[in-house]
Design a binder for these strands. Structure first.
Length: 868
RNA sequence: GCCCGCCUGGCGGAAUGGUAGACGCAGCGGACUUAAAAUCCGCAGCCGGUAACGGCGUGGGGGUUCAAGUCCCCCGGUGGGCACCA
């Protein structure tokens, strides 16, 4: 492995170390990648955006992949004549900065800004075609001040409100925990048992837009289908009914939401969430119920945890009447699998037709009454054992619903009756909840609100924005440093002047990333956005990022855009017209004999292919290929790769390995292969020398024509591959092309060959430019090209020159390949079929058979269907 | 538990329903070299056969079709998301 690199040090043909900074400076000097806020060029706009990074300190391979993909698109579209905007910034608020402050005593601001400086330098070494003049960080008051203004506008428009919500509370650290910070019911840092706690929080009313966010998904035809599906499921529209059950013996009622009102006669019990008021009432009266509710409270708020936990419950002792069955009463249970946030926080249990209800009923010996009969079953013999029936069928045991088909007809009949007798109504329920944005953290955008005893919630006046974070905070005790600050929260009410209290919560960092794409259009403007700029540039034409953001970030941004439209900031409703989601970067993992994870650079492979530790020669176990992570130490530092092989090699390899939407495996050998190709291409250019200058020859030899065909086929093929986001295919086409050029070189200089080679190499340089921009410039300059490849227009392939002189037709008998025949591209059906039938191997297969049918697909295939 | 994705040679992958395995990596053979590295040329799915060629083959099973990696149904394996990480 070292040989390749050492050669590069000794005397490379292509010296990326000098070339890459040189061309980066040249692009910068020409301002190649600058865009205007409100362009005057008249060219069609194209806004390319990659999800901006969190400034963790160093770029990782995921970033390299993300920004390389975006850069290929940006450079390609620019060459195609679009006016491209391609900005970069920093998603700079968030918990890691605060963790660093607690662990190492460094101020979050200092930590963040140093990380940004470091990462900016690393990104710049990648040679990305970014307009750095648009850069900003979300932790800068000149950004988040505008965000505060947007929040106040949303508040005014009724898109923000105060709500109580349940959170994971760490009683020792005195802080709210994310679900991922709750491990086996304990806080990750303190180890204390986590409790659910109710908190008063600010929410964005995203549910107001639920129908719009759902229906607009249909129009996002340049989004991956699966992302649209994930969002649709997340929004979760379901049609059903709210049903009210009067309490037996006391006042009051329980309201449930159900999607299956057709199965109401199969009801066995009611179950309420542990946070439901009835559960609280039961707990007050019954110590066992109180104990159960307390236990559920320790379970955390994660849906995955709740739904995989053992189904448990306790009878409250309350009984309800049934709206359709006079005289019947049913027990009300508290169950740990009922979610307070969904529907009404209460369900009716129909064990025969819902698996979860069935498991629960069996556990607590509650009755199971089938009310939907599967087709083909007899009512007398049908019963439910341990598998609930949730398919279609006919209603039985259900009074006025009997005989109706379930669920559809019976559902409408049940709803009609509920409405008639005033016991409920048909409703559309949404799974989507309002977006809680309050965080009890320091390193986030302050929520610009003042709480006044007399005036209530008072917005911070516009002329006091941005409301800046105080710098002098300490992290020496648990809880929110803003809350501990001696003076910051004490303020006079802007309305009445009395002593009042600032809101000390800050925004969820998803707020920061929900409108940054709009701010990029006019990053220096005094208002959150410059209307003319966003009207021109939005929506983003191509957005690129990780699939992990498929739901939250993208949905929040879609909401924000609608909210900004409602408050007059933008005209569009959808922020991202095109979306591409990339796969992860993975690597083998390595473990030493004592079980410690080892970094790839600590490993060496022996002649027999086994891995050993480089220093000691101790054996190493090669583990699974998985997502690069610091804990597994299977990371590769892009900075080191770029220093050793150059940015173009890193970019080329990351594009060549596999389709960008799939996970890719980073391998040393793959990088070396990419590096070798940079040298190979450059050698081909060097070997050309001065050959082929001058006017296009009158005639070309057969070999020269073959090369020109390869050239024009490659232009067409690479163009199509780039349009399709099939960058690995584009790379493969260029490899094929370089093989064709090398072959032509060996064929000597017959008629027109030198000219054809020059044409081929010039096109090669221009076609690799979006992927390996530095090498492209260096090669182009060496060939005597004038100007920058970055400023050239995209080449157009000549279809006539690319056309094949003969085509190969596959010949099948009964769908099995029996041979191939060469024909002229315009040979007709009769001639082609005759030639196919005459093929010796085909003829042998046809002996003694009767040809029933001859299938002919022009340019592709002849298939004989035979009998006998 | 619910939702979503993925599965093709030793490896990454290519393939408008039309010659499965392009291209690359690793491997093998050759040229060059005192030698090695680098470079260049060639071979290569698996089984059988000197070969011509034949059989098998895209996670497993079934179906549609003249023709299925591709479309449909069932099953298996594996990865991701599930609301305060970003």
């Amino acid at each position: 492995m070292s040989g390749v690199v050492e050669q590069a040090v000794d005397g490379p043909r292509y010296d990326f170390r000098s070339a890459e900074p040189k061309w980066q400076a040249a692009w910068d000097a020409r301002g190649c990648f600058k865009a205007q806020d409100v362009p005057t060029s008249g060219r069609k706009k194209y806004y390319v955006l990659e999800m901006f990074p969190y400034p963790s300190g160093k770029i990782h391979m995921g970033h390299v992949r993300n920004y390389t993909l975006g850069d290929v698109v940006a450079r390609y579209k620019r060459a195609c004549g679009f006016d491209v905007m391609h900005p970069m910034g920093w998603d700079a608020f968030g918990l890691p900065a605060e963790n660093a402050a607690r662990e190492r005593g460094v101020h979050p601001a200092k930590w963040t800004w140093e990380n940004i400086a470091n990462m900016r330098a690393e990104l710049q070494r990648m040679g990305l075609s970014l307009d750095w003049a648009r850069e900003f960080a979300t932790c800068d008051p000149s950004y988040y001040g505008h965000q505060q203004k947007l929040f106040l506008d949303f508040l005014q428009a009724g898109l923000v409100e105060r709500q109580e919500s349940w959170v994971n509370w760490d009683p020792v650290d005195g802080t709210v925990l994310a679900n991922e910070q709750v491990i086996d019911g304990r806080g990750w840092r303190s180890g204390a048992l986590v409790e659910k706690r109710k908190l008063s929080t600010w929410v964005f009313r995203i549910t107001k837009f639920a129908p719009a966010l759902l229906s607009a998904l249909d129009g996002l035809d340049r989004w991956p289908e699966r992302v649209r599906l994930m969002q649709a499921n997340w929004i979760g529209r379901s049609e059903g009914a709210r049903v009210r059950f009067p309490m037996a013996g006391t006042e009051g009622e329980v309201e449930v939401f159900t999607t299956r009102p057709d199965t109401l006669f199969g009801m066995s019990f009611i179950a309420v969430a542990p946070e439901h008021p009835l559960a609280a009432a039961a707990a007050a009266a019954n110590p066992a119920a109180a104990e159960f509710v307390a236990e559920c409270r320790r379970m955390g708020t994660s849906e995955a945890v709740i739904e995989t936990a053992e189904k448990r419950g306790i009878d409250t002792g309350f009984r309800v009447a049934h709206p359709f069955i006079p005289g019947a009463t049913f027990p009300v249970w508290i169950a740990n699998f009922v979610l307070m946030e969904y529907g009404t926080g209460a369900i009716f249990g129909c064990p025969a037709h819902d698996q979860r209800d069935l498991d629960f009923a069996r556990k607590y010996a509650l009755p199971v009454t089938p009310v939907v009969l599967p087709t083909g079953e007899a009512a007398a013999s049908f019963s439910v054992a341990d598998k609930a029936f949730d398919g279609d069928g006919v209603i039985i045991n259900s009074g006025f619903l009997d005989g109706l088909s379930a669920p559809k007809a019976a559902k409408s009949a049940a709803i009609a009756r509920l409405e008639e007798i005033g016991a409920g109504q048909g409703v559309v329920n949404w799974r989507l909840r309002d977006w809680g944005v309050s965080r009890q953290r320091y390193w986030g955008c302050p929520i610009p609100i003042i709480h006044c005893e007399a005036c209530g919630v008072v917005p911070v006046p516009d002329d006091q924005l941005p409301l800046e974070l105080p710098q002098d905070v300490t992290f020496d005790r648990p809880g929110n440093p803003l809350d501990h600050h001696p003076t910051w929260k004490h303020v006079n009410c802007p309305k009445c002047g009395a002593a009042a209290r600032r809101e000390t919560d800050t925004f969820d960092t998803f707020v920061d990333s929900s409108w940054y794409f709009a701010r990029f259009c006019s990053p220096g403007d005094k208002a959150p956005v410059l209307r003319a700029a966003v009207d021109h540039w939005l929506p983003v034409d191509q957005y690129i990022g990780g699939i992990e953001h498929a739901i939250l970030h993208l949905l929040y941004s879609r909401f924000f855009t609608r909210a900004m439209k409602a408050t007059g900031h933008v005209s569009v409703e959808e922020p991202f017209a095109g979306l591409f989601t990339q796969g992860m970067v993975t690597h083998e993992s390595y473990k030493s004999a004592d079980g410690a994870w080892l970094y790839p650079e600590e490993i060496e492979f022996g002649a027999d292919g086994t891995a050993v530790q480089r220093q000691t020669g101790a054996p190493v176990t090669v583990g699974r290929v998985e997502a690069m992570s610091k804990s597994k130490r299977n990371t590769v530092d892009p900075g080191a790769i770029i220093a050793r092989f150059g940015a173009d090699t890193a970019r080329w390899f990351i594009l060549s390995d596999n389709p960008p939407e799939r996970d890719m495996q980073w391998t040393e050998s793959g990088v070396l292969g990419a590096y070798r190709f940079t040298q190979r291409l450059f050698r081909l250019v060097e070997a050309l020398g001065d050959a082929g200058r001058g006017a296009e020859p009158e005639t070309f030899s057969v070999a020269a024509r073959r090369l020109r065909r390869a050239t024009h086929r490659t232009i067409i093929g690479v163009t199509q591959a780039l349009e399709d986001f099939a960058f690995n295919v584009a790379v493969a086409r260029i490899y094929e092309f370089s093989n064709a050029i090398a072959e032509a070189e060996r064929n000597g200089d017959d008629d027109g060959m030198a000219w054809a080679r020059r044409e081929a190499l010039e096109m090669a340089a221009r076609l690799v430019a979006p992927m390996m921009p530095h090498l492209a410039e260096e090669a182009f300059a060496l060939m005597g090209g004038s100007g920058l490849v970055a400023e050239l227009s995209w080449p157009i392939g000549d279809a006539a020159l690319a056309a094949a002189e003969t085509v190969t037709i596959a010949v099948q008998v009964m769908g099995k390949l029996r041979g191939t025949v060469e024909t002229a591209p315009d040979a007709g059906e009769a001639a082609t079929v005759a030639m196919a039938e005459a093929h010796p191997n085909v003829a042998a297969g046809l002996v003694g058979k009767r040809i029933v049918k001859r299938i002919y697909v022009p340019g592709r295939i002849v298939n004989f269907v035979v009998a006998g």
